[in-house]
Design a protein around this nucleic acid. Sequence first.
DNA 1: TCAATAACTAAACAATCGGTTAGTTATTGT
DNA 2: ACAATAACTAACCGATTGTTTAGTTATTGA
Lengths: 187, 187
Amino acid sequence: MARKKQYNEEEVIEKAMYLFWRNGYENTSMQMLEKQMGINKFSIYASFGNKHGVFVESLKCYQEKTKTMFDKFKNASGGVEDIKQFFYDSVAIGYQQGFEKGCMVTNTYNEFSGSEDQIIKEQMASFMKSLKNLFIEKLKMDSTKNDETLQKQANFLVLAKHGLAAATRVNDKKEIEDYIEMTFKNL
Amino acid sequence: MARKKQYNEEEVIEKAMYLFWRNGYENTSMQMLEKQMGINKFSIYASFGNKHGVFVESLKCYQEKTKTMFDKFKNASGGVEDIKQFFYDSVAIGYQQGFEKGCMVTNTYNEFSGSEDQIIKEQMASFMKSLKNLFIEKLKMDSTKNDETLQKQANFLVLAKHGLAAATRVNDKKEIEDYIEMTFKNL
DNA sequence: TCAATAACTAAACAATCGGTTAGTTATTGT
DNA sequence: ACAATAACTAACCGATTGTTTAGTTATTGA
């Protein structure tokens, strides 16, 4: 054995996550990461391999952070009304710390849309798929809906959620609220 | 007098525009611009000052390119149905040349959302404002709608348009179509 | 015809990018 | 107490970023 680490990997990743969340992958430099994480490049590379590794861990950290909200959504039993609440919760989580950062998954999805990065793309696709399935599950609580309607409405909701997350970075609370209310008016 | 320019500024800007449209501002390098525009860095700087200048001109070029579609929308008289058609036209314009590039204004709006670039931000804000006013004008054709409803629905549509443009980069035609149809179901 | 001048080429600029490495410091088990 | 070793610092790597500039080529009016 030898010297102990002077930092906690989970702690520094959370700091890195906020940087990526706000600025995306390309617009976050190793220099910024050093400063924000409070550790040296050497330590970053020793712990996470490379910049991409820091990003992947940051994404996991984000999913951990949003897990509570997700579980609340999963375990709820109000049907469509739960989806609406989930939309409101998703928006609220990006408002923390003054700066509006949107949804990190959506930001990543957009930034990597034209990329060849299979690791990230697969993570994103899997996330979107499970989101759609969750929506279908909630929509099914209204048993009058047939399969085609379920698919169409779930597709609509995934896109609405995606667009909403993009919009939160540029629009104000009132506009966001109007949007959510209108979205759920005929579901 | 002296030597003539061996290139046409409008022609090379159109080529630059496609690069920015697809890759955004930061992910388009001067090297890529040189290659795509077919002229030397010296000529680019002589004609447009700097990279930012090339981008501003590219944005103008994009607005010129979409002017036809906009005029069609302005001059139509079908109310909400015209807005829906405008949504479809907006999506279609990004599908040209195989690659899905979304809406250049929306892409720019998103990329510069956290930026300090006042020149770009003002252009974007002015664009969004005039879009909202156009929506209100079309919505007004249904005279039963009061001012509050008009505002709310216009806000909804601006966000829906914004989200739609973001989504076109990652979703397929069928999903996009479902989204547009659902959006206009209760307007 | 020829000096003036604008357009061009190509090399170089400093700054920054992600990533590496030689050398120093601290902690360990023996 | 001390060799072994992991964690750390800081300088450095080559490549690329946006931008500039010295030197060359082509076209002009006189």
